[in-house]
Design a protein around this nucleic acid. Structure first.
Lengths: 205, 205
DNA sequence: TGTACATCAGTGAACGCGCGTTCACTGATGTAC
DNA sequence: TGTACATCAGTGAACGCGCGTTCACTGATGTAC
């Protein structure tokens, strides 16, 4: 039993530690040194792999988008009906963000991440496109006249807003004595509303 | 022409300076001392009025919710049709957030604001209620069976998500060669989709 | 109207701290011959 | 199989910095008599 000098996969360990810190204290109270401390490693080590703070956070954001892509495509793959796919994707989005709050907090924070990073941009676009494709599929198969970009943006905005507001909404429920809604139910209802909206426009044929 | 020892309304000046800093550098790069510098005041002065950093940011968040409440109620007051009211409120929400990005960045950041602050809670609830009331009015007057809480939450989440994603969406438009959509148009389309969704459920009578 | 005094608002020096980054280093691993 | 050497991964000491907060202070304002 020896403590290896070489860690094995320090970059990953550092991302995990960073996610832990952020989940606990919020991204506003994040520090590189604490991350190193948690990973049980010298505070100079992160620099070797990520350059600087921004690099680490950017890497976390990329991981977030990749996980998001994986989650929503996996969720969609479980259904045949495109509308069901969309609902499943929405649920997956919010569920993932709840499970990995640190990533969700970082992914759109252009002030602390390098927004020019090509990997980040590619990962973001890939996730967006996956959603867009399903929306287009719905529109095509149901012969709707709704605009695919609009509906996609609406879905994405709603999911993201929901992620951000979820604690608040739960709190409101509690405040007013309503019994708390499960996240999945909330997402499902939202998506169904959006779908109804898209469907209620004129059909293309 | 003398520089007065007493400032007159330093708390407000500090909030303005803080909003400036955040708008320029993002809330991740905010510092109390820089705020004091911008306000042309000793760096110890803010402590007198706000206690500490958290106090100043909380005060900014309160101001944000109050401005939001004022903006959406004013927007709603210009219309008679409740559905038009809702659309106007959504537009006002996003417009305000664009005009005062610092406030928008701070309002839901529970990690850097005091979420227990009674003023903050009250201001937030007031704005939420204003939106809720209009939604309830639509449901009542159009005899819809949609749940008022759901629709309110959907609207709020969508608006908030839109505020957060707007730079990204604009960027995507540009990337794909679409001509950029004006914010107002985007909001309007979103709200109409939501309304269609709410309307397409069964009527209550 | 004048004076004494309390209160308020902002100063500026000082503190200690944790931070991000750098640097020469050392230990571990891989590779060429 | 062994040896020399290059490369890689992490160390730990050191740096300078800007930060938030505190404190005794001073200037300005308001109030009581």
């Amino acid at each position: 039993m020896h403590t290896p000098y070489h860690h094995g996969d320090l970059p990953n360990a550092l991302r995990c530690a960073a996610a832990e810190v952020i989940a606990e204290k919020g991204v506003g109270n994040f520090s590189l040194r604490e991350v190193a401390r948690r990973a049980g490693v010298s505070h100079a080590a992160p620099g070797h792999h990520f350059g600087d703070v921004r690099g680490l956070l950017t890497s976390l954001a990329i991981e977030g988008f990749e996980a998001l892509y994986a989650a929503i495509t996996a969720a969609a793959a479980k259904h045949n009906d495109p509308a069901e796919k969309l609902i499943a994707m929405g649920t997956a989005y919010v569920t993932l963000a709840t499970k990995r709050p640190a990533h969700a907090q970082v992914m759109f924070r252009l002030d602390i991440v390098d927004p020019e990073d090509p990997e980040l941009m590619a990962a973001g676009l890939r996730a967006y496109t996956a959603l867009h494709d399903v929306v287009a599929e719905i529109i095509r198969s149901e012969h709707l006249s709704a605009d695919a970009d609009d509906v996609t943006n609406l879905c994405w905005s709603t999911m993201q807003g929901l992620v951000e507001l979820q604690p608040k909404l739960d709190y409101l429920d509690e405040l007013q004595g309503r019994k708390p809604i499960k996240t999945n139910d909330r997402v499902r209802r939202f998506q169904q509303l959006i779908l109804s909206g898209a469907r209620s426009g004129a059909r293309t044929r």
